[in-house]
Simulated assay, not measured.
Amino acid sequence: MLKNKKTQSQCEKILIHLQAGKSINPIQALNLYGCFRLGARIYDLKKAGFEIDSRLIHENGVQYAEYSMRGEN
């Protein structure tokens, strides 16, 4: 399913983060896991069957997505 080990590793780290009840946004993904393409990793996780919610955040004129596991904050 996943293209390479780096992609797989990022997905695993992001999944653990989400399963711990934490939300994640693109800046956190970059700083914590070196992931430049959080949306793509979320897509991979959703395709693998994980239920992940997204919401748009509008802050200081900037819009970005924040992701969390369903049923979590």
Score class of each variant (00 low, 15 high):
A65Q: 13
Q19P: 00
A40I: 10
I57N: 11
Y43K: 13
L15G: 01
M1N: 08
S23V: 03
E12Q: 14
L30W: 13
K47E: 15
F36G: 05
P26I: 07
S23G: 11
K22N: 15
K6H: 07
D44P: 01
H58Q: 09
F50W: 11
D44I: 06
L15P: 03
I14F: 01
D44S: 07
V62T: 14
C35I: 03
I27T: 13
F50P: 00
K13N: 08
Y43G: 00
I52N: 05
P26W: 02
C35Q: 04
F36C: 09
L30F: 15
L56W: 08
I42Y: 00
G21D: 04
R41N: 07
R70L: 11
Q10L: 10
G21Y: 05
K6F: 07
Y64N: 03
N60Y: 14
E12V: 11
S9N: 12
L32T: 01
D44V: 08
K46S: 02
R37D: 15
L32N: 10
F50H: 15
F36Q: 12
A20D: 14
Q63V: 11
Q63L: 04
N31S: 11
Y33W: 06
H17F: 06
E72T: 15
Q8S: 11
R41P: 01
G21M: 01
Y67V: 08
R37G: 05
